[in-house]
Write a protein that binds this DNA or RNA. Structure first.
Lengths: 207, 207
DNA sequence: GTTGAACTTGAACGAGCGTTCGACCCTCAT
DNA sequence: ATGAGGGTCGAACGCTCGTTCAAGTTCAAC
């Protein structure tokens, strides 16, 4: 199964669009900006995509699907709740760090979609949030009830992870592994009062 | 010193603008939307404000200044690092929860400013980040070196706090005090491994 | 009753927006 | 050589944008 020429071009268009959207924001970016950035004429963009909205949707959908699939994959067969959380966080940050533009668009332009597009992305978000909430429930079962509201804890973790587009530089002196470990420890230490050691939090990419 | 009629009207305009910006985003909002929401004619808006940019800047500046002043105020004379952190977090979330629209604009539309306006807001952000970093340094002195990168920890805390505009409802069943306590515990437990009890984290508004 | 400043407005400006359309290239099976 | 179809484009459509401006209204001070 080879990827068609059209699919390849669409991928390139989406990649270019993600960069411009991340840089200037969705609404500030014009289709003419997009055309310039992707090396196609203005009209040519519409051969690959039906509308500016659909362009944004495709970026969000494809990348969120990749994150979701990665999470399901790395969690398969793992039962220890601590390791499950570590892998969940690691998958999220790993993908984020290697797709900063796309993930900034996913995190920052959540409100720019509407109608059916918004619905479909929100459904994915709901599934993903549920995954984390379930892990938190397992964590509490295994390590005693948390003294924190589970919903607050879940969204706080998402906050830590998704906020990185505001400050994190994957090429800086803080590597992704360190970032992932740090955030995982920060959360686990605060949520179930676990002592934080390398042994407790294995790096998921080893699995 | 009474507030002039003009200042009052400007305040109302900014409040209305913050609501619309928070709802629809800065770039998607037109000056005609703003005029409608604030009950002034389109041209009338320009009597109070020089440009759409300045409108956004004023919202960000005024509210950030309030947060900064609140932080300096609540930290004055307090030396215990744990209480300093608790007060810092509490001030931030308290103001956030009671000014959701304005703070969403401050958090979400950071990249919409440019030139001198951007510079001045960034300077405030720098000061504010420095305040937190200093508290973290004190925390480490008092409770042993953290096993976490200080910068990662600081931005993770900002992430937890600023992300709330994506999910938190101040009128829902999670009160601000609970939210503030939870986030503070989450952070302290993970950062310096402190046991989390009501005694350790006093509620700042009591001071 | 006149003045002048504070305030408000409808109407317009030029520019840029997302999108469409018909014409044009290719390539390749017939 | 021909025609079909995937790919590309310049030019234009109607619309909305941020901003301006001259002409108004209100009203306290003289």
């Amino acid at each position: 199964m080879t990827t068609s020429n059209r699919d390849q071009k669409l991928d390139g268009l989406l990649a270019a669009a993600a960069k411009v959207f991340a840089d200037r924001g969705y609404h500030r970016t014009s289709m003419r900006d997009l055309a310039r950035a992707s090396g196609v004429s203005l009209a040519g963009v519409y051969y690959y995509v039906q509308s500016k909205d659909e362009l944004l949707f495709l970026i969000q959908q494809r990348n969120f699907e990749a994150v979701l699939a990665g999470a399901r994959d790395t969690l398969a067969g793992v039962t220890d709740p601590v390791e499950r959380l570590a892998r969940f966080v690691d998958n999220h940050l790993d993908y984020f760090a290697s797709h900063m533009a796309e993930m900034k668009v996913l995190s920052h332009e959540a409100g720019a979609l509407s109608g059916d597009f918004l619905q479909r992305v929100n459904d994915m978000k709901h599934d993903y949030t549920r995954m984390l909430m379930d892990i938190l429930a397992d964590l509490e079962t295994a390590h005693g009830p948390a003294h924190l509201n589970r919903r607050v804890a879940a969204y706080s973790l998402f906050g830590m992870m998704n906020w990185i587009y505001n400050w994190y530089d994957p090429l800086g002196d803080v590597g992704v592994e360190l970032l992932s470990q740090n955030i995982c420890r920060l959360f686990l230490g605060g949520y179930v009062g676990l002592p934080v050691s390398d042994a407790v939090i294995p790096h998921a990419s080893a699995g």
